[in-house]
């Protein structure tokens, strides 16, 4: 059933060039971050690690949360338009699967973005003459970034489900991204849902491995995703659309 739902989601997004934004956005930090890195090469001496910070710092805190907010709002808006909720909820499918299929669709986009960010990172690092990219670390950063991004996606989908407005959940995503920065600075990055992506991607201190261990990180992410999915599914089944 879930595959059919995913296929339906894919059909709904066909000819909607929202993926284009996720393709263009990482190019900007890759290009300008690399130029900035070359300009400050005497201060930034950790090579690949310094470059990673340049590439991902703003992306994690400001721009990826907003982009995810827009994407989630867009996916939910399709259902709000033309009373599509009425149609979709009369289908013989469980309501939590509807939410989960949407979450998987967004998560897939997060994963693709992370892979693209990683690829651009390797390309630009090699282009400026660095050798031996830390492939292991890059894979870990991108995978855990995706997991953290999934947490953010689940909150944003939940918000867009409850708030009919298009812009308001995006505003919340922006505030969330800022709060993520704040919580990370205060040392609560590993438990605050909006910090988890930046925390997973190790964007501000790439050399330091996550202190609480990756198992803890995965558990926190899974708990958050399950929590937001359950809340959304329960309310989706109780509430009249």
């Amino acid at each position: 059933m879930i595959f059919k739902l995913l296929k339906a989601e894919r059909m709904k997004l066909k000819r909607a060039p929202v993926w284009l934004a996720f393709f263009i956005m990482p190019i900007i930090p890759a290009l300008l971050g690399t130029i900035n890195y070359l300009g400050n090469i005497e201060i930034l001496q950790s090579e690949w690690y310094s470059l990673w910070t340049q590439h991902t710092l703003f992306t994690c805190y400001f721009f990826l949360p907003i982009m995810l907010g827009v994407y989630c709002a867009y996916i939910m808006r399709i259902e709000y338009n033309n009373h599509n909720w009425n149609k979709i909820l009369t289908m013989p499918v469980s309501r939590n699967l509807i939410f989960i299929s949407k979450l998987i669709t967004v998560s897939f986009m997060v994963l693709i973005s992370e892979i693209w960010i990683g690829a651009l990172f390797v390309i630009s690092g090699t282009a400026v003459g660095m050798s031996a990219p830390p492939y292991g670390s890059i894979v870990v950063w991108c995978l855990f970034g995706t997991l953290g991004g999934m947490v953010m996606a689940s909150i944003q989908l939940m918000l867009s489900l409850f708030i009919k407005s298009f812009a308001l959940p995006i505003g919340i995503a922006f505030a969330g991204g800022l709060s993520g920065l704040l919580f990370l600075a205060k040392g609560f990055g590993h438990i605050w849902p909006y910090s988890l992506m930046a925390y997973g991607m190790n964007s501000n201190s790439p050399q330091r491995m996550i202190e609480s261990g990756y198992t803890g990180f995965v558990v926190v992410c899974v708990v958050f995703i399950a929590f937001f999915t359950i809340i959304s599914s329960v309310i989706l089944s109780k509430r009249d659309v």
């Binding site: 909607a16 929202v18 284009l20 934004a21 263009i24 956005m25 900007i28 930090p29 300008l32 971050g33 130029i35 900035n36 300009g39 703003f58 400001f62 721009f63 907003i66 982009m67 827009v70 994407y71 709002a73 867009y74 298009f166 812009a167 995006i170």
Partner: peptide
């Protein structure tokens, strides 16, 4: 009609603007 377009264009522009402020050498 699709407001996602305006959001994405605006965010990408903001990103360019913000980054350009960190590159005074260009």
């Amino acid at each position: 009609k699709n407001q996602a377009v305006t959001f994405f264009a605006g965010i990408i522009g903001t990103f360019c603007g913000l980054f350009s402020m960190f590159l005074p050498n260009i």
